[in-house]
Design a protein around this nucleic acid. Structure first.
Lengths: 200, 200
DNA sequence: CACAGCGTACCGACTGGTCGGTCGACGTGC
DNA sequence: GCACGTCGACCGACCAGTCGGTACGCTGTG
């Protein structure tokens, strides 16, 4: 039970997490059995329930990993220096690149959220909310500075943009013609464009 | 004992579909049992399997309903008359309004797609693709006319926008402060803004 | 010996789906 | 006007299989 000190190379545990991530992304949480996970990792259920408390626990850990990574990247880019428009552009682009680099995580995130235990669900929502707020503050900052249009609530711009980002898991393929960087640049351009003052 | 007169002359089939839609949206397809559906509809499994071939069949019918409705609305707005920018704006706004009016359908659509039988899945994808293409043509038309920026593929603009639309099911609430019309207008403004020629 | 790190065998709950049967409405013959 | 036959709508008990989870045993290492 005692969570051993800083990860001491636990290959089985790591394999279980990796295979679970792959399978959850591919077939969904509810359609993936514990049997399939342990088979893919080359162990048995005994091993899995040695490292994880339950199947939900596996999902929970995946969410924790995603939240931690994304929040860390966001703050790094948002807290940088330079004009707000440039910071938002760089941040938006990085969000896309990071999402594309961990596409399985993204698929799981927005598709299995409602399968979490109620308590865990609330925690994840709260964490996600803080994430969105940090992003929203960037938009609002630009609006106050007169760089972005002000007739649309910053909150809605965030939901608008992150909808597009979540949707990446549905259509983007690493084998396709577009790199994550390219998609990221286009998405960031679209976001900045939508926030610009209209010509007409 | 006999089914008393006044109660529910309404078709059982309709109730089953309605309750299934509600429950699928609330808990997801895989987490909803046939027992729960028939209990909510006030009938038994015999009734359900009398009207539907399987649980998947229920889901399939929901998808058919959504696809039919959305495609019909899209063509109605896209094939109207007037400048392309205005048509795209009206279309985008209607997509949001329609989505918000059938929010349960939308939640199911993007969350349970991979639960469909392979054959059905392909059909739905194909239908959805035609839908996207119709929308993309609108964007491309504006680009050729020089009204919209041309440095971003129309295809990507479509994925960008419909990501936001799909995401509505995650955050929008009819009980919230914003009406579907308001969200629709904002979304359409953002879309048109992102397609406008930049000032800077 | 102690104990982490697993494998093996198994449990009870529940799943989607089936099947024989009941019930009332309705056409038909007399 | 009444008995009969039929048919769709629906019930409810049941099935085989699958699920997440558990109990316990073995084994190598310190």
């Amino acid at each position: 039970m005692a969570r051993s000190a800083v990860t001491v190379e636990e290959p089985v545990r790591r394999r279980l997490l990796a295979e679970a991530t792959r399978l959850f992304a591919e077939r969904g949480f509810e359609s993936t059995s514990v049997q399939e996970i342990v088979a893919a990792a080359g162990v048995t259920k005994g091993a899995m329930y040695h490292y994880f408390g339950s199947k939900d626990d596996l999902l929970h850990e995946i969410y924790g990993r995603v939240l931690r990574l994304q929040m860390e990247r966001l703050t790094r880019f948002a807290d940088a220096e330079g004009p707000v428009a440039e910071r938002l552009h760089a941040t938006a682009m990085d969000v896309v690149v990071t999402t594309v680099e961990n596409l399985d995580d993204s698929k799981i995130f927005f598709r299995s959220m409602h399968q979490l235990a109620p308590e865990t669900y609330k925690t994840v929502r709260a964490e996600r909310r803080r994430y969105h707020e940090r992003f929203r503050d960037l938009v609002a900052e630009g609006q106050r500075a007169g760089v972005f249009r002000e007739d649309i609530p910053a909150e809605m711009v965030v939901d608008f943009f992150f909808g597009s980002v979540h949707h990446l898991g549905t259509w983007y393929s690493p084998d396709g013609p577009l790199s994550g960087q390219e998609v990221g640049r286009h998405f960031a351009d679209l976001l900045l464009g939508s926030l610009g003052h209209s010509i007409s």
